[in-house]
Write a protein that binds this DNA or RNA. Structure first.
Lengths: 252, 252
DNA sequence: CGCGCGGTTGACAATGATCAAAAAAGGTGG
DNA sequence: CCACCTTTTTTGATCATTGTCAACCGCGCG
């Protein structure tokens, strides 16, 4: 593979990343050596259609997973951050169905598929952690579907931002200050709208006083209000909760 | 849980369902007993928010997975058939994030989460099969995203039908004769469009000579043509392949 | 310095959501 | 078996959200 291989990294850290909080009693001496890959921003980690030899666990940085159509259109399927498992979808067919591209300088633990079964058998904590992580991935897939399913573009973007905010919170960081690692085009692709529409939706949410947007820096001013937007399944008006009030486009 | 519990079913069948084709040498005497659930059409198997005690492997029939918004809107996230694993997304948080509803009379193998780790350790074939199935589920999530991402409604429906056709083929059944177990509304929800639009898209594809539609019976007349539609990421016109020609709406 | 890329904004056409209504299918009870 | 109801599906008409084309700006990089 392309990525630079560096010295093995602490097995403990891998377990912690996977959420297998249980501090195992086992001897740390028996920890296996897991290759650590370092990727530069923009570098492809896995390539669609290539034989799947590894699964990767993101240690730092972030990735976008995508499939590119024959006409060159890049369909972004998900974004991944620390603790997320990548490449597992390649296990069933033997080759990766999606590409993963680093959005910033990143590091991943690379688990060779050949040794995966053995590793899991010998290290139950790793096995449990992996199952947990896979469960999370599956649950996330549903969340992605929910983002894309919303009718109004502003709602899709709001759901995306709330989701990102949740990721930040889960990682112990501020859920209000978001630093987007991906382009508008990538967001647009994930949400299934034109990139111009994403841009417009950002300004729309900002004009509602929910956000402050400075290029890829987004500050969430009203997280609850944003969650309100999130809820509207049909139009923008919310039948259930209090109406967040139509944007009143162009209202000064 | 609600479902009727019947006598345990052959462990072998479960393994075969999961695609663990490898005929294991082990003694069939040691096969564990796995509960088999029987569900009537329309019966909910798992309910959103309920504690996750089991994962289920569909043996026969089909299901829809959905989340219902507080305003009552049902967002369908995926459809599942024989060999698919349900409920695994509940493992990470301890409760099901989605509901699964039987679309017809169905049966599932129910694996208690409490015993899952032990079962997997004692039966490597089961473990491998489960990982395979989970990998498939993950890959499928990407496919669902691709369906929803298409701009034109006809393209979304075409992708859905091609996907269904693939499911049929993978099961050794005719890839041309589809018997839809789900309502137009369910399809619409999955694809992220209004159910009226699904109806219109069906007639549009039929008028293109690609389908023959009789209520929930769909016959694919031109699978290659349908795949052509599938490819168009932007509008309907295909830049790459030969243009499938705009529907020429209303052209007699 | 010029170029390309990412982002924003405007204008316009159109796809599809919504409202409305009717036809068709399925289920229930007499 | 039929009447009656509900649900599902289809079709029509209207309007607006959004895709598309286009221009512009700011920034980083060669």
């Amino acid at each position: 593979m392309m990525p630079t291989i560096t010295a093995p990294a602490p097995f403990q850290e891998l377990l912690r990343l996977l959420g297998s909080d249980a501090p195992r009693p086992g001897a740390p001496e028996s920890d296996p050596s897991v290759p650590l890959w370092r990727l530069r921003a923009g570098a492809p980690m896995t390539h669609e259609g290539m034989p799947a030899d590894f699964i990767q666990v993101v240690r730092s940085g972030s990735f976008k997973c995508q499939r590119v159509a024959e006409d060159g259109y890049e369909q972004v399927l998900s974004f991944a951050g620390p603790g997320d498992v990548l490449g597992f979808d390649g296990l069933c067919r033997g080759h990766y169905p999606t590409s993963a591209v680093a959005l910033e300088d990143s590091t991943v633990f690379a688990l060779p598929l050949r040794e995966l079964d053995r590793l899991r058998q010998q290290h139950p904590a790793l096995d449990r952690g992996l199952q947990q992580a896979l469960s999370r991935q599956l649950a996330r897939a549903g969340e992605v579907a929910e983002m894309m399913a919303a009718v109004a573009a502003e709602v899709r973007l709001a759901r995306f931002l709330v989701w990102l905010s949740g990721c930040m919170a889960a990682r112990g960081q501020s859920p209000r200050r978001l630093h987007l690692r991906m382009s508008r085009r990538d967001i647009a692709s994930l949400l299934g709208v034109a990139h111009e529409t994403v841009s417009r939706s950002f300004t729309a949410l900002a004009e509602l006083g929910l956000l402050r947007v400075d290029n890829r820096d987004v500050e969430i001013l009203d997280l609850d209000g944003l969650r309100q937007c999130t809820r509207s399944t049909r139009g923008f008006l919310d039948s259930a909760g209090r109406a967040p009030a139509r944007p009143e486009r162009l209202a000064a």
